[in-house]
Design a protein around this nucleic acid. Structure first.
Length: 578
RNA sequence: CGGGAUGUAGCGCAGCUUGGUAGCGCACUUCGCUUGGGACGAAGGGGUCGCACGUUCAAAUCGUGUCAUCCCGACCA
């Protein structure tokens, strides 16, 4: 490709609306342009990158035995009613009506459609297991799109769905996809970590997310990991061991009694007033899950992880209750205490979840719904109901690995892929069944596996850049090499540059010849910004028969004859591409 | 949806307080000059000032409304 004809407009300045590196650089270097909020044009350079990622994904999925298909972008409401998600998916589901007033949606994911395909086509156990995938644009009407391609509303995704007759086959396919994902991200030049995660609205039980680790704002997830073993998890799913703590207050309280605790609205104030560690206080928190109140009990020095509580309560939406809502709840139950003095007793009709940290607490302090009073020396028998224990605790820095007991570390990550075990979450309600050996109808055991193609591209930029621009990994770079003749009016320089250009192209290398009549500085700036992995400069040293060879990633720089440089480029690039 | 801001040429911005010919830098076109890290000179092209209504002799500028975009909090590839 001749640079003079390449459709690209690099900018001198960063766009004013971009926050994160990948967004700034992709716009400045002329890869993308925003069309409307969260929706981007993929310009020719970007499209080449995306196609390369797609092809890597395609090759590895095919190699793993999956079959590609393509499903519609628009889906009918009826299917979503079958799965029960029309009502629960929320506003991210872009709903629309056709001219006959039939309700439709833009596909944010395709469990429903693939399940309907499967139940029509997979009638016998002899056809299973099967894994079907597609690469397609998705639309999710995100509340707040941001970070350019990292969180667009429209984005390109590879989504795969597996169907099996038993858990064992699902486990096998799950591992198979895990291995494929590891190969895919490696080939894309990305280091990823597979972390345990919450399964969210898509549902299911076991799931992992593939994270590109990046300690910048672009990483929207907190990842806890252990350096001594393989444990790692998204913060919404992480568990930990806690250091030893005082959880029996018998040294402080001889018997259970109500004590005046004036103005102790916070845990800090209460523990200071009573002169006890906060680990002896039982904290009662009120959340609103799907518009209904839920009480969470947890040891007072710890915080609640809302996603865990939401899952325990079986909801899809959670937030902490407002003080007005708490006041209303108090009133309905004949109390008038303010937040800070809430206790579980007297709210027997409200669902209650006690964190595991509560299980072994004894002779502790708890609110009794009376302002300026607490019950001290309390035990579970004083709470007025049986406690059901569940882990709803937010893991924090400094806690210990649940597997090996060493300290956990935390970092930020960009989620570029995930794998879920769905089980029969969709096949059962949608009556998607096959006949087993005994002729009996059985629902498929399903899994689903996603990769954000456009997000992976952006994550690659987050992981590979410097102050001059992008440093694309060779495997996904829009072009491998740029040849820069310093002076296009110098016949010798141009002849050498064109010969190398032709030779490299003949060898299957993707190369751009910067034939613009610009000063060298302009061409170098653009080459660095766009991020060509290799640059060859044909300048004055051609008089001695030498050209300059430069590697963008490492800044390694050498002088070679044109023939040597050509050979070196071919062998370096071929060794990466395999 | 709450809270904060911004809409003026492809990009980045000034002008608005105090109403009167729409400006600057980059990019683009032509010519000259220059050619190893975003040169220089000259001459050009390009704008419904987000939109609507209002006030006024006159609105980018004042008022009302509306739309869009961005940033901070709850979702997810």
């Amino acid at each position: 490709m001749k640079m003079s004809k390449l459709f690209v407009q690099t900018l001198r300045e960063y766009p004013s609306d971009a926050e994160v590196v990948s967004h700034k650089l992709l716009v400045k270097a002329g890869f993308i342009r925003k069309l409307t909020s969260g929706v981007y044009n993929y310009l020719p350079l970007m499209w080449r990158v995306l196609k390369k990622i797609e092809n890597i994904v395609r090759e590895e999925m095919d190699r793993a035995g999956a079959q590609e298909l393509l499903m519609p972008f628009v889906q009918p409401k009826e299917l979503w009613e079958e799965s029960g998600r029309w009502g629960v998916y929320g506003k991210e589901l872009m709903r629309l009506k056709d001219r006959h007033n039939r309700e439709m949606c833009l596909g944010p994911t395709h469990e429903e459609v693939i399940t309907s395909i499967a139940r029509d086509g997979l009638k016998s156990y002899k056809q299973l297991p099967v894994n079907l995938y597609q690469i397609q644009s998705k639309f999710r009407d995100e509340v707040r799109p941001r970070f350019g391609l990292l969180r667009g509303r429209e984005f390109i995704m590879k989504d795969a769905y597996s169907f099996a007759t038993c858990q064992e086959d699902l486990d096998k396919e799950y591992q198979n996809m895990w291995n494929a994902y590891t190969r895919i991200f490696n080939r894309c030049g990305l280091d990823t970590k597979a972390v345990q995660s919450d399964s969210g609205a898509i549902g299911g039980s076991v799931s992992h997310e593939f994270m590109v680790i990046t300690d910048t704002d672009a990483g929207e997830n907190d990842v806890f990991y252990c350096n001594d073993c393989d444990y790692s998890a998204n913060s919404n799913h992480a568990i930990s061991k806690l250091p030893e703590a005082v959880i029996d207050g018998k040294g402080y309280f001889k018997e259970a009694k109500v004590l005046d605790t004036p103005n102790t609205h916070s845990i800090e104030e209460l523990s200071a007033f009573l002169n006890i560690p906060s680990t002896l206080i039982l904290k009662s928190l009120v959340y609103i899950v799907d518009k209904k109140p839920v009480i969470a009990l947890i040891r007072a020095d710890k915080a609640v992880e809302e996603t865990k509580l939401m899952n325990a309560a079986g909801g899809v939406e959670i937030r902490i209750a407002t003080s007005e809502e708490i006041a209303e709840m108090m009133e309905q139950h004949g109390f008038n205490a303010v937040p800070g003095f809430i206790g579980p007793k007297g709210f027997e009709d409200i669902p209650l979840f006690a964190d595991e940290t509560v299980r072994d607490m004894k002779n502790y302090v708890v609110g009794i719904n009376q302002t300026d009073k607490h019950l001290v020396g309390a035990n579970h028998s004083d709470l007025g109901r049986e406690l059901n224990y569940v882990d709803i605790r937010l893991v924090e820095r400094g806690e210990l690995c649940p597997q090996c007991g060493k300290p956990l570390f935390v970092t930020r990550g960009i989620e570029v892929g995930n794998i879920f075990q769905l089980g029969t979450k969709y096949s059962k309600p949608m009556n998607a069944v096959y006949l087993d050996q005994n002729g009996k109808a059985q629902p498929y055991i399903m899994g689903c596996y996603g990769i954000g193609i456009s997000r992976t591209a952006a994550a690659a930029v987050e992981a590979h850049y410097d102050e001059h621009g992008i440093k694309w990994p060779v495997a996904i770079a829009p072009y491998h090499v740029v040849i820069v003749p310093v002076n296009v009016n110098d016949e010798l320089q141009m002849n050498v540059a064109e010969k190398m250009y032709n030779d490299l192209q003949a060898a299957g290398i993707e190369v751009v010849l910067d034939d613009r009549d610009e000063r060298a500085g302009v061409k170098f700036k653009d080459a660095d910004l766009i991020g060509f992995p290799y640059r060859v400069t044909v300048g004055k040293t051609i008089a001695e028969g030498l050209v300059e060879y430069k590697v963008r990633e490492t800044d390694e720089q050498e002088k070679y004859t044109p023939e040597e440089a050509t050979q070196k480029l071919i062998s370096s690039i071929k060794s990466v591409l395999g």
